[in-house]
């Protein structure tokens, strides 16, 4: 009785706390999503635009059309490669940050956060001025005599990956740093004193303990990369296709059912791979 009486206000408090966010999410995210999901089973007609029906034709078209499939594979490839680069490049950086006792540590963290203040489009514009045929890199190479004429580094998959890595790296570093900071330095030293050289220590002790951070950073940067819009559009150019720009392109053609189907393939793929990462890391963490 008394336990019930005590717990009832707690439940009320909890409901009060999570209520508003849940309401907004339900109204603003889940509702439209369900609507969009319904759209994806409708049929597109160039004249009537959308015919209410129930068909899988949009999805069938997606997985049979070379155009869509290539965009799908490009998105997966760019997402995976940029995430791996973020992890490999971000881990040492995050480690140094986490272990730094320097009074400049806060400055370093600010240095990592500041790029997040600049919008993706603005940053992509910066890359364009650097990588274009009249950009800084091309001109420098010419001046130094490495190349005879202007070189255009724009509009390649590599450029897009570089752009996405630059956008996503801070998220990875911050996710890793917070977890690495929680690992006691003495644990590393214990491994050293037991005869483990640095790389062995990192593999046997640091990485397993950092797995929650690795999972968080990987999932975060992967989702961001899969859904990148401004970077692939501006750095990849008109003939470079990734999923998010594709969704927008279909909407522009007024093909709502097609756009909805592409959007749901993108979302489902991202979700599946995210769950996969979560399961793998959880298992690894259990095994040790």
């Amino acid at each position: 009785m008394s336990a019930n009486a005590a717990s009832r206000p707690k439940i009320l408090t909890a409901a009060f706390l999570i209520g508003p966010a849940t309401f907004i999410a339900a109204l603003g995210v889940i509702g439209p999503m369900l609507y969009l999901l319904r759209y994806s089973f409708n049929q597109y007609d160039p004249m009537e635009l959308m015919i209410e029906t129930f068909t899988l034709s949009n999805y069938v078209e997606f997985f049979t059309s070379p155009y869509y499939l290539s965009a799908y594979l490009t998105t997966l490839r760019v997402g995976l490669i940029s995430t791996v680069i973020c992890l490999v490049a971000g881990f040492p950086l995050a480690y140094v940050l986490a272990r730094s006792g320097s009074r400049f540590k806060n400055l370093m963290i600010i240095g990592i956060v500041v790029p997040l203040f600049v919008g993706n489009a603005v940053r992509a514009a910066g890359w364009m001025s650097f990588l274009g045929s009249r950009g800084l890199l091309s001109v420098t190479l010419m001046k130094l005599g490495f190349t005879d004429g202007p070189t255009d580094f724009m509009y390649t998959e590599g450029t897009v990956i570089v752009g996405i890595v630059a956008v996503n790296l801070p998220y990875m570093v911050l996710s890793l740093q917070s977890v690495l900071e929680g690992i006691n330095r003495n644990v590393e030293e214990a491994a050293f004193s037991l005869g483990a050289p640095p790389l062995t220590m990192a593999r046997r002790v640091l990485l397993p303990l950092a797995l929650p951070g690795i999972a968080a950073g990987t999932i975060l940067t992967f989702i961001l990369a899969m859904n990148a819009y401004a970077t692939p559009v501006l750095l990849g150019g008109p003939s470079f296709n990734m999923m998010a720009p594709l969704v927008y392109g279909q909407f522009q053609l007024n093909n709502w059912p097609g756009a909805a189907a592409v959007a749901f393939v993108l979302m489902a793929t991202t979700l599946l791979l995210t769950i996969l990462v979560a399961i793998i890391t959880r298992q690894k963490f259990r095994e040790g």
Binding site: V187, A190, L209, G288
Partner: peptide
């Protein structure tokens, strides 16, 4: 050298 720390420093995993 076998080292023992104040905070044990066992490998938690």
């Amino acid at each position: 050298t076998g080292l023992v720390f104040q905070n044990y420093a066992l490998f938690p995993h």
